[in-house]
């Protein structure tokens, strides 16, 4: 199993000048904690739940957009001495919320180390067209609690003819 964290890939493209291999400071904007916890998602080894997780994250937003993410192994988290706990997600895709986790008791140094590790990994982008396709499948499969959609997202889905 791996853990997925959404990011804004543009922030991660280049190390700061003179510091090769180090995550840029702006990357920390993608690792903001709340109560020293970082929100992440479990992805099965075969990637079978990736679309469901991507779609649920997309539907919890306000606008249809591409989605960037990075994945890392649970082993890596353990090596950094970090603790991952189950924590029910709050997306409109109720079945996907069970995949949500939190990395807890993070110190500032932990977050910086995590950033450096994630910087060395491959980062992925799900293009907007693909996100729409995943969302369409979730809506078509009646897996979305439409009442939980943000009004702007609701309007965006209507405009894209994904909702009546």
């Amino acid at each position: 199993m791996a853990l997925l964290r959404t990011i804004k890939r543009g922030r991660w493209l280049e190390a700061p000048a003179g510091k090769p291999g180090r995550a840029p400071g702006d990357a920390l904007l993608d690792l903001q904690t709340r109560d020293n916890k970082l929100s992440v998602w479990v992805i099965e080894d075969d990637g079978s739940n990736l679309d469901e997780v991507v779609g649920s994250i997309a539907l919890s937003r306000e606008a249809l957009s591409h989605l960037d993410y990075v994945t890392f192994e649970l082993d890596m988290v353990a090596k950094l001495g970090l603790d991952v706990r189950e924590s029910e997600g709050a997306t409109p895709v109720l079945a996907a919320n069970r995949w949500h986790r939190e990395v807890v008791e993070l110190s500032a140094e932990d977050v910086a180390e995590l950033a450096d590790d994630l910087f060395r990994r491959e980062r992925a982008r799900v293009r907007e067209a693909e996100v729409k396709s995943i969302v369409a499948q979730l809506l078509g499969g009646a897996q979305v609690d439409v009442a939980q959609l943000d009004p702007n997202m609701f309007a965006a889905l209507q405009k894209s003819n994904l909702l009546p």
């Binding site: 804004k8 904007l29 937003r61 606008a63």
Partner: peptide
């Protein structure tokens, strides 16, 4: 602001 993809902000 801290921008996030898919999240509206003052620029959007």
């Amino acid at each position: 602001e801290v921008f996030e993809d898919g999240v509206l902000n003052s620029l959007s």
